[in-house]
Design a protein around this nucleic acid. Sequence first.
DNA 1: TGCTATACATACATATTTGTATGTATAGTA
DNA 2: TACTATACATACAAATATGTATGTATAGCA
Lengths: 130, 130
Amino acid sequence: MYSILTMSTKKNVLDLHPYLRQTLDLIADKWVVAVLYVLSQNTRRYGELQREIGDISQRMLTRTLRDLERNGLVSRKVYLVVPPMVEYSLTPLGKTLNQVLKELCDWSTENFHDVEAARLSHDNSEQNRS
Amino acid sequence: MYSILTMSTKKNVLDLHPYLRQTLDLIADKWVVAVLYVLSQNTRRYGELQREIGDISQRMLTRTLRDLERNGLVSRKVYLVVPPMVEYSLTPLGKTLNQVLKELCDWSTENFHDVEAARLSHDNSEQNRS
DNA sequence: TGCTATACATACATATTTGTATGTATAGTA
DNA sequence: TACTATACATACAAATATGTATGTATAGCA
C-alpha cells in the first residue's frame, strides 16, 4: 500500500489499491461488524442475531445478512420446517476478515483515548468554537 | 474482542468494545482513507491533496481534513503568506492508524478475489435473480 | 376457527452524507 | 484597474442509508 511515487497522470489515489476501497465499503456500514462479531462466536438463527445485537431493525438485519451472504462472508442454511428455521454462520473467508477486524479493535482499545483527548482539546480551544 | 460469553441483559453487542464502532466511524467515510494514504507519503498542501486524490470536491476535502485534525490524526500548519499556504501531515497517532489500514489493505489484496467470485456465483444463481 | 411462532418482503418516510455553485480575502502582477 | 493564486466558507440540492409499519406463509394447538 504505502510504497508510492509520483502520480501525475492518474485520477484517483485509490486506483492503486482498488480493493481497499471495496473492502472498506464492505465493513463500514452500521451493522456488518456487529453481525460478524456475533457470528464469530457461533452459528446463530435469525432471531438470535436480532436479540443479541439488540437495536437492529429487522429490515436492516435481513439486508445485512443478504449482503454478507452475497459477498461470501456468511453462509445461510435453511431448514424446511414450520415455523421456519434459518442458521447463519461465518464462512472461512468471513473468519479471515474477522481477524483483521480484531486488529482494528486492538488499535481502538490502545489508541482511542488519544483520539478523545484530541477532540476535547480541539473543541475547547478558542479558535474552534462555533 | 472475540472472547465472549452470554449476554442476556445488554442491549447492543458493540457495547463490549465501544471504541471499535467509533474507530470504524472514523475511517469508514468516503475520503478519509484516501487522505491518510496521500499524507502517509509526505506532507502536502491543500491543493496538492486535491489534485492527487483527483475526484474529491473541495467541500469534502475541507471537511475531511477538519475531522482528521479534530481527531488528532492530522496536523495543520498555516503560513501567513499571500496567497495562503497550509501544510497537512500525519500525527504520530495518524501513523499508527495507517499501519492498521495497511493490514486491511493486505487482506483485501489477498482475499478480495474470493469476494468477487462469491458475488458472481451468487448473482448468477437462479434463486437470486430479480 | 383463530392464534402462535419464525423469517422474511415491501412500501413509504426520515435522516444522514455528499456534491454543486457561488462567495470571501489579499498581495502581487499586467 | 482588473485579474491571478490559494485556501477556504456557506447555502442549497441530490443521493444514499436507515427506520417504521404492515403484510405473507404455514403447521400445530386451544
